[in-house]
Design a protein around this nucleic acid. Sequence first.
DNA 1: GGAACGATTGAT
DNA 2: TCAATCGTTCCT
Length: 199
Amino acid sequence: MGRPGYGRGEILPEGFYSRETALVARDLLGRILVHNSLQGPAAGMIVETEAYLQGDPACHAHRGITPRNRAMFGPPGRAYIYFTYGMHHCFNVVTAAEGMGEAVLIRALEPLEGVDLMRRRRGRQRLAELCSGPARLVRAMGIDPGMYGHDLTREPLFLVRGAEIPGEKVEVTARIGIKVAANLPLRFYIRGNSFVSKK
DNA sequence: GGAACGATTGAT
DNA sequence: TCAATCGTTCCT
């Protein structure tokens, strides 16, 4: 049995992630996140990302390895999932060489498949409220904290190639919701896409 | 052991 | 504009 729907696309190989983190963050735009869960498939196109770098005080790995951030120092192409504000989880892809402590936060998706499942998981009807925000998309996609460290080149959670977004459609700004290093141009989104999270 | 804080969200 | 809500990290 083949994978359903968007999950039939070419899975991004580990080499996609083992590059410079800001480059990966930009290149992730247009790629498709797929989760084939027991409840059914869900997929969305990545429309907004943020890069978190070593030596960057806003990065969770800035002060070295801890129990929470250890996945960031592991092999690229794995999931780094963290709990925040006492109630939300956010999803990152680990980037750069093993040992580097860098990752890309996925901030928003354009829902493509499994929209009704996303609506049930989110308890919201409007398409624009399903995956526009890092904690929202974790809920909508059914990403479980138990997937911490999961290899994103494998079922049931993986990324497929999707489309390449041309440079003129990529917007670069400061990152959202941080108090340090708040001026660095490390947020990337698809210009004009209505599923980008709001400020 | 204690406390401050957070890569957010949704309601007011 | 503000409350919810608690694990992580750092300080004493």
